[in-house]
Write a protein that binds this DNA or RNA. Structure first.
Lengths: 202, 202
DNA sequence: GTCTATAAATCGATAGAC
DNA sequence: GTCTATCGATTTATAGAC
């Protein structure tokens, strides 16, 4: 282990700040968490935070990025681990059951997005990311549909938009009403699988 | 016009506060709007606000109630005004096109819900309202389906949950990305109409 | 680049006069 | 019930030492 360079220590503090900010944001929400709390919990001072992030929403944006990286990684791992379409569906179901809404990921993302929607810089970044995520999901759907000979009921981009909106809508509501079940999302996916029946018939 | 009783003037003040709070919340968001701004814009003092609402989130809850009343009234008017199913669908399409996300209703509701999700009192109220809205929508769907001989693809309650989540998800995303189209929601509705084909066949 | 210290402003909420 | 005045806590953000 060589001594860290200046650049490396800086990136380390940045990473630590993002990590603890993520925990606090998830636990108490974006608005209810102050930068002072983040600094203290991470073992730094408030000034340290501001030398790494110009504003609070810049830190928030970094946290969202980290969260989304984790989310994507988790789903990809899950999909890769399952072979058949039914297995993938079941695996995704288990993931959705425990992760959508309850953990607070969706709630945090949506709280941040709606609370900072008037800051043009943030708004643009979120819009950009939304499009990238939608496109990525569309490609994944297209790919999986081809692999399993499924005919999508609509353009992959539309199906992706539909599923994403559904997940967000369910997650948001589940954040304040745990009674809400996410079976609806699974049903939507199952419907996609139903088109499996007549693959290369015509 | 008789002189207003004490109770009436109080309700008038309350109504005025809610109205201007609604405007400010819609324009700038819940978190970004202070009670002082609301009081000043309404022509009252901060103390006047606090003699009508114990906390900020109590005012927020009242605003949400007013907003939702308007929303429901608008949709009902729209549905009553159209006779055939296709007309209703088209009318709802026009409403969705200009109202979902863009106006900020959904964004405000979701911002408030996610920002106050840790205040148990608010959380419970929102959860309660969510269930009432879902049930009402389910009843409306059931009613309309019967009228037009449509077989719903799933229990009305599930379809209602699905559509509601879809609307919320689309509205939220549209709040920071106007490029997003809501055609997906209309497609989902059109799919319901597609089940029109075999009504009393079996 | 991180620290301490603090500015500067604002917030939600309260007290007491009327 | 509404006012003025203000509390007290907290916020984001900055200045300057190291």
């Amino acid at each position: 282990m060589a001594r860290l360079t200046r650049k490396e220590t800086q990136e380390q503090t940045r990473a630590r700040l993002v990590e603890t900010a993520k925990d606090l944001f998830l636990a108490s929400g974006y608005n209810a968490t102050s930068l002072g709390q983040v600094a203290e919990a991470a073992g730094y001072s408030k000034g340290a935070v501001y030398s790494n992030f110009a504003t609070k929403h810049e830190l928030g944006l970094a946290v969202l990025e980290a969260v989304q990286r984790e989310r994507i990684a988790a789903v990809v791992t899950l999909l890769v681990g399952a072979d058949t379409f039914e297995d993938k569906l079941a695996a995704f179901g288990r993931w959705a059951e425990t992760n959508i809404g309850d953990v607070g990921w969706t709630a945090l993302e949506v709280e941040f997005a709606t609370s900072t929607r008037h800051i043009e810089e943030v708004r643009a970044a979120l819009a950009d990311r939304r499009r990238r995520v939608t496109t990525a999901l569309a490609e994944l759907l297209h790919e999986q549909a081809e692999t399993f000979g499924i005919t999508l009921p609509a353009p992959a981009e539309d199906v992706a938009t539909h599923l994403l909106a559904l997940g967000i809508g369910l997650g948001v509501q589940r954040a304040f009403d745990p009674e809400l079940q996410v079976t609806v999302l699974l049903d939507a996916l199952a419907e996609l699988a139903a088109n499996n029946k007549a693959p290369q018939a015509g």
